[in-house]
């Protein structure tokens, strides 16, 4: 099981890099959606079957992260009529370089954090920290509000990945609450993206620069 898990984790990492390198926003949405589906099966691979609870979590995770949220974002894209990320703050090449550096740092950092016996040898912690970093990068490196929302989703995916380690001990309610909060957050952000589009006829955040000292 652990080898399959490692493959899935590496796929998740690869999707981070893909999301940072591609300029079509549609491509980023697809990457985030696929990442959501993969995240749904990680708990099963890491812990084996968890009965009804595991199945419920799988359905809700895949349903929200893999289907509902990407659809919401695609809808917002159609409304705003945008396809490409023009003139990112940090170019795709440079973002990929930073992503590589961040992933290296995540590996170094996680080697200083001791793991419990039952988790020894798992790649989950470095994969999680690296995904958090890449999500943060996507948020800060791009101008389009919608790409920033996608970055936030990648960041949340990284945190969710870490949560898998705690699955045995955490009540289901907390996990569902977290998922629901993320969904609502993206929903609210989607509404604001729509408002930005209506107000400025573009969703590029460079117009949001009036408030300063």
């Amino acid at each position: 099981m652990d080898q399959v898990l490692d493959v899935v984790l590496i796929l998740i990492l690869a999707l981070n890099f893909y999301a940072l390198g591609v300029s079509r926003i549609r491509g980023i949405v697809n990457a985030v959606a696929l990442q959501g589906v993969l995240l749904g099966i990680v708990p099963l691979l890491a812990h084996g079957s968890h009965g009804l609870r595991g199945v419920l979590l799988l359905i809700v995770t895949v349903g929200l992260k893999g289907v509902a949220i990407p659809r919401l974002i695609l809808y917002a894209m159609r409304e705003a009529k945008i396809q490409h990320e023009v003139k990112p703050i940090i170019s795709p090449m440079n973002s990929l370089f930073l992503a590589g550096v961040g992933t290296g740092l995540a590996l170094a950092l996680s080697s200083t954090l001791p793991l419990a016996d039952q988790h020894a040898g798992l790649l989950i912690v470095p994969a999680s920290l690296s995904t958090v970093w890449n999500g943060f990068l996507l948020m800060t490196a791009r101008r389009k509000a919608i790409t920033q929302v996608l970055g936030y989703l990648v960041l949340e995916n990284g945190i969710f990945l870490f949560g898998v380690l705690l699955l045995e001990a955490m009540p289901l309610l907390v996990e569902l609450g977290v998922l629901l909060d993320v969904f609502t957050g993206v929903f609210v952000m989607g509404i604001i993206v729509h408002q930005i589009n209506r107000e400025f006829a573009t969703i590029s955040t460079e117009h949001l620069a009036e408030l300063k000292e």
Partner: peptide
């Protein structure tokens, strides 16, 4: 709108 967007992004992170 700008203030709300900034608050949401910074607050969410």
């Amino acid at each position: 709108l700008e203030a709300t967007w900034k608050m949401l992004l910074v607050g969410s992170v």
